[in-house]
């Protein structure tokens, strides 16, 4: 088991390196850098000004070198200008030249400097992640139990009327992307044209003080799609288990239907959805980005959009590292959890 996890961690590390390098490469393509220079400097810069602006900040070095500087394996680019001013990667406003470190990469715990927010990336990402974590907590609380109950109810009697009603509902949910359900929710519950302004169409205030009025709609919007999806998976798994030979054995042993579902079917039926729930995370991240943009909730998804929209390289890299790690860790958990839930493949 330990060896397995170690190997998986190795693969994860490799994946993270590859992905961050791809992000790094794409963000460092010249047109992107040019745009960065113009937004940071001014929009009427000439070609030469752009390249000197970029050169001063080390952007014109070969991409692998820049990447290693970001990682912290090479000393950060720095140059003393003609007027004696020190410029470079590791230079921060209000930090004296003597105190500027030579290395300033991820390995040193330094995630870089955001050009949009004019502040350390680590700090920004931390706060925003916290806000998103709060949102996700509520989403999970709504989505997972709801989906499992719906799925089990539908799957325990395949083909029954309950099943058909619930299945069609789940299909309808999975067919509704967040940007549609969000729009519909706002139109219905937060506009004068619908049922009146019962809820708020913006969740900005929920960042300090979340309540039903400003938080229900975003949570529901994210939860809905996943709810349909997980419910369908649970239903499929449950209905498959219910036709299994051992369920018939239990039935012919005289076990009541209730106990068949609770004691015999449930555990076997939940193995597959568990994996699905875990693998839902990448998609949930999508939902988070859409919902945070739609409801103006300034969490991690909103941050990602800001970073990407403005080609804020360091911030974008940090965001992708976080996103990738979330995805990979959930994959790992799903694998390990699968083993624990399923005695058939447990290592003896």
């Amino acid at each position: 088991m330990g060896q397995f996890i170690l190997r998986r961690l190795g693969v994860m590390l490799l994946t993270t390196i590859c992905l961050t390098y791809i992000v790094f490469f794409l963000t460092n393509l010249y047109p992107n850098l040019e745009k960065l220079a113009k937004t940071q400097g001014n929009f009427r810069m000439s070609e030469a000004e752009v390249s000197s602006w970029l050169g001063d900040r080390g952007y014109l070095q070969p991409t692998p070198v820049k990447y290693l500087e970001w990682v912290g394996a090479l000393p950060g680019y720095s140059i003393v200008k003609d007027d004696g001013q020190l410029v470079g990667r590791c230079v921060r406003p209000a930090v004296a030249a003597e105190d500027t470190p030579r290395y300033c990469g991820v390995l040193q715990g330094n995630w870089g400097f955001s050009t949009v927010f004019k502040s350390e990336v680590g700090g920004i990402v931390g706060t925003r992640l916290g806000l998103t974590g709060f949102l996700m907590f509520w989403v999970m609380l709504v989505m997972v139990p709801g989906a499992l109950i719906v799925g089990v109810l539908a799957g325990m009697r395949e083909g029954s009327r309950t099943d058909r009603t619930l299945s069609t509902t789940s299909i309808a949910f999975t067919a509704t992307p967040e940007y549609v359900s969000g729009v519909v929710f706002i139109a219905l519950f937060a506009s004068s044209a619908g049922f009146g302004r019962i809820f708020k169409g913006s969740a900005t205030s929920a960042m300090e003080d979340a309540n039903l009025e400003n938080f229900l709609l975003p949570v529901l919007t994210i939860a809905l799609y996943g709810l349909g999806y997980i419910a369908r998976m649970t239903r499929a798994s449950m209905s498959e288990v219910m036709t299994a030979q051992y369920i018939r054995t239990a039935r012919l042993k005289g076990v009541s239907f209730r106990n068949i579902v609770m004691k015999h079917a449930l555990r076997n039926a939940l193995i597959a959805p568990f994996t699905v729930i875990m693998l839902q995370f990448p998609w949930l991240l999508n939902g988070v980005v859409i919902v945070e943009t739609l409801f103006n909730y300034k969490g991690f998804g909103w941050l990602l959009v800001q970073a990407a929209g403005n080609n804020d390289i360091d911030l974008l890299l940090a965001c992708s590292v976080v996103a990738v790690i979330v995805v990979l860790v959930t994959q790992l958990i799903s694998d390990i959890g699968y083993v624990f839930l399923n005695p058939r493949i447990r290592v003896s």
Binding site: C18, L26, T27, P282, V289, S320, A323, V324, V327
Partner: peptide, 13 residues
């Protein structure tokens, strides 16, 4: 590798 990329990030890039 591609699947681990958040779709939106990929699109933005």
């Amino acid at each position: 590798l591609i699947l681990a990329f958040p779709v939106i990030l990929l699109f933005y890039l």
